[in-house]
Design a binder for these strands. Structure first.
Lengths: 210, 210, 210, 210
DNA sequence: TATGAATGAGTCTTCATTCAT
DNA sequence: CATGAATGAAGACTCATTCAT
């Protein structure tokens, strides 16, 4: 609109075009997998919803599984970032264990609240290659290590087996959160749920070792 | 053609035979689904392993999904029975909360330790019809109701929102137990795991309400 | 039609049925490959022409290539039998070299005259697995060995390197015969062709060594 | 924009550039077809190896088959030239029939020894249009005519049906030579092979008519 | 003219399901 | 009721070819 002479009058430069296509495919795949599941979500459905030809899909992804895998990687990435955020926020200055757990649970709920069905498809229905499986285990392990360090640095924590505690904490939060988000209609408010979960973890961690 | 003597002197009455066939099919389906997953476990595989023709399978089951559904129902049945056992055992006479939780967690671990892969397939890979979904929720709700009653009757319990507590307890035990059984290689022994889980629940329930 | 009570009133016993289907598929495959070549001859074409469903084709053949392979095996079988016939006929009693060659060339022409296009497709267009390749080489080698023995037993033969001679003879007959049959419209009668070919071989073999 | 000076001072005139491109494509096609066969050698492979875009390939060739056809024409051209060379060399002055055949066979072996796989692909895998088929027959016919003339001019030749003889000679040399080059592992040296083949032809041609 | 992203008809193949025997 | 050969809809994927830039 200004006076700058467009050197490249293409609306979308070539390179951009493919990125747009790839993103459209991934977005479509997310929607299709979410609504139909992995097995019933065909590559033709995905291409159609993305508004591209089936050929374009296979130009950018070697096969159906790889589309799902990219989605999984994205999901793991987001999870890792969120987790890092929480840790960063918490690491700045001393916080009470309650505050830390509160942040943690809050972030987890938020994360799972987004697209729970898609996450389920991605995590349970997609056949995970060995690498993907290992990557996912690795991501969880990293979370457990981080939590363990958090526990170590907190004077309120009184359980002795911190590895076991980290295992319990991470998996409890993960699983309960997921369950809460999926098990939709409840007489249990999100606020209440978070409070109970934090309470449980807090009492567990601050209790004398068994 | 002679007298009244049965023309077909089979040892097992008609009804028996079909029961045997149905059981064979279900057993075969369990094995096939366990080893190959739901999608890759074909009805022909099942029939073959059951030692019956594919036609017979469709004599007793309208489609593939219904085979899986019966397996799911069986699984829920077993779970309910186990749960009832625990409740019965506990209801006889007063027990400490720790003992109750110990029984509960112990039973759950035992239950999940049996055929975790099949359970995963049944619970996560099989597409659940709305009815099945509701049935499963109903079963869980029943468990929660029972747990709530248990909590009500225990003087040690100090949380106030017993519904929320029951929700937390049931789902935590369920999810953590499953995760523990599936997430195989660990430096965490089953004994230790149970102890930690029970400790967490115990402290949660016996703590003052939040 | 007689009085024999048919114990099995099926028109075609079960086992026969599948044989009929398989034969229909093979016959159809031969026709389809002959008319469209291997690459353009689709399994759907074959099934359609055979009057069976595509599913039936894959019930009896694991993939497209295996259909062609069975055709190739049949072809090799026929070739081996024809060759054995010629050898048998010739081995009975002493024959002049001319007679032997005459039989040989005659049989070869006859063999190649049948379905030259299909043979070409089978031999040149179908991707040969290593085993198939070896099998084909083996068959040819057997022919060469047999011819060599024939040459050894003929007093008229004067070439010294009988292995080389057998190689030359077998391949010349094979190739020329094929070429003759394929290179259709000629001013060269089949009779004349055979005569010339036999003459060439005869003079070659009965000439003094080079 | 200045004076008459070429606006586009490229070193290679337009026509040259396309010739270079076309040659690159043909060379690439030869390599790709040789290594992957006709069906599996995609136009994208060819363009990529040629270092040009797929669009450029279709700028110069209407379709995949036409690329192969140009390669076939080249091959025929080379064959014709080689053949002409042999004839020219031989036509200078009188030669013994043995010498002539020796030259002929030698040239043929040499020719087939170069790129036997590519030749096979070009001759057997590429679907030949009617025109191409006719062109190939024409080329062979020309060879046969030339050979017939050669035979006519040789006093050593004693077969009477020179057309038939030319047919036999040309095809025998062609086919046997090809077979020899392709049927790799042998206890038959190239020298020996050539000697035997020449001997056969010599005896055939110098023998009294049948 | 060159480019290469996009196209989509067309392959092979699978597997739940039917039905004649 | 049992059987299992037959069915065919549907899916993943390829690649020659086009055309907007």
């Amino acid at each position: 609109m200004a006076t700058k002479k467009a050197k490249n009058p293409r609306k979308t430069p070539r390179q951009e075009r493919s990125r747009v296509t790839v993103d459209a495919i991934l977005e479509a795949a997310a929607q299709v997998f979410e609504s139909r599941g992995y097995a019933a979500g065909t590559t033709n459905h995905i291409a159609e919803r993305a508004g591209v030809s089936i050929g374009s899909l296979y130009q950018y992804f070697p096969d159906k599984e790889s589309v799902a895998n990219v989605l999984i990687e994205r999901h793991m990435q987001e999870g890792a970032e969120l987790f890092a955020d929480v840790l960063g926020h918490v690491g700045q200055q001393p916080h009470s264990l309650a505050t830390v757990l509160d942040h943690f649970v809050g972030a987890m709920v938020e994360m799972h609240a987004k697209n729970p069905r898609l996450q389920h498809v991605l995590l349970e229905e997609v056949p995970h290659s060995h690498e993907m499986h290992e990557a996912m285990r690795g991501e969880k392990r990293k979370a457990m290590v981080a939590v363990k360090m958090l526990l170590e640095s907190s004077p309120e924590v009184r359980v002795t087996d911190l590895s076991a505690a980290a295992y319990i904490v991470v998996n409890t939060v993960e699983a309960l959160t997921h369950e809460f988000v999926v098990g939709a209609p409840h007489d249990l408010s999100r606020r209440r749920f978070k409070k109970e979960l934090v309470a449980m973890l807090l009492r567990y961690l601050s209790g004398a070792s068994v």
